[in-house]
Computed example of a mutant assay.
Amino acid sequence: MRLLVVEDDARAARMLVSDMADLGHDTVVASDGRAALLQATDEPFDAILLDVMLPHVDGIGVARALRDRGVLVPIVMLTALGDLDQRLIGLDAGADDYLVKPAAPVEIEARIKAILRRSARTNDHGVMRAGDIEVNEIKHRVVRAGRVLSLPKLEFQMLCELIRNKNSVVTRQMFYKTVWDYDFEPATNIVESYIRRVRAQLCAAGESDPIATIRGVGYMIVDHG
């Protein structure tokens, strides 16, 4: 893989480049947020390893700007800031995953490969439907009854998971794994919180709520078509 390492600590950058080289990957280093934006926009990369605390533009700003520009390359944030709120901010900004330093090189590689596998499961057209809801995974576009919705990254991923499994229950554990890539259940109600946001978007024009709550288990979208 060809990786963009965004790290302002020269020693940490050298170590990460060496670790990735040992695993057979080519790397390019950007030492600040502005340089990262230029390189990620102008050059092809398989993934970006992005620090949060950066000069000029921080990692959150870099991730958000890249997504706004339509750059969909996988982003894994590597940072010393490991609390849940920080992870959610990073994921909301457009990151695909979040690892706390120091992260083992093999784990970084495994996370990137997991993101790429998820992307590869998208069909050629990327279009899924349930009732009057149409989702295009490739274009990150949601339409309900002719109304175009604007869903942030995590809400979009949750809706995709619901429609991908329409007429079946999506458990909280499934959301933790597919949306947040957690192998454990965090002691928070993040699934419920994000489901509320998805519902608010889907029902903003007074439509009926298409998401059924299966108490104690998870959520489901029923396609009556």
Rank of each mutant, 00 (worst) to 15 (best):
A12Q: 12
V169C: 02
R147V: 14
R129W: 09
D19W: 12
A47E: 00
D85K: 13
K177A: 15
D85S: 15
F184Y: 15
P44Y: 01
D58N: 15
A13M: 00
I195V: 11
V198C: 11
D22P: 01
I190H: 10
A110H: 08
L116I: 04
N123M: 08
A200M: 10
V52A: 04
L54M: 12
A13K: 00
D9M: 12
V198G: 08
G218A: 00
C203K: 10
V148W: 09
L3K: 02
L151V: 13
A12M: 04
L37G: 04
V5C: 05
A10S: 09
F156A: 02
V73K: 02
I211A: 06
K139P: 04
R2P: 01
R69K: 14
R11K: 12
A204L: 07
Y176M: 13
M1A: 13
K166F: 01
K166M: 04
E161A: 05
D92R: 15
S18V: 06
G218K: 01
D132Q: 11
R141N: 05
R144M: 03
D124V: 10
G59E: 12
V5I: 15
V143L: 06
R34Y: 09
Q86N: 15
Q39H: 12
I60Q: 07
E185N: 13
D46T: 05
G59H: 07
E109P: 01
A130G: 11
V198T: 09
R196D: 10
N136V: 00
A110D: 07
V29H: 10
D96M: 07
A187V: 14
E155R: 06
A212Q: 08
N165I: 06
V127P: 04
D8K: 03
D26S: 12
V143P: 00
A212E: 11
R69N: 13
I75W: 05
G94A: 11
M15F: 15
V62E: 13
K139A: 14
Y182M: 13
I133D: 00
A120Q: 15
D42K: 07
V28P: 02
K101F: 00
T41S: 15
L91V: 02
L37E: 05
N165C: 03
I89W: 05
A63Y: 04
A10T: 11
V57E: 10
Y219N: 06
I190P: 05
A145Q: 11
D46I: 01
A187P: 07
E185Y: 06
G70W: 09
L78R: 07
S168T: 14
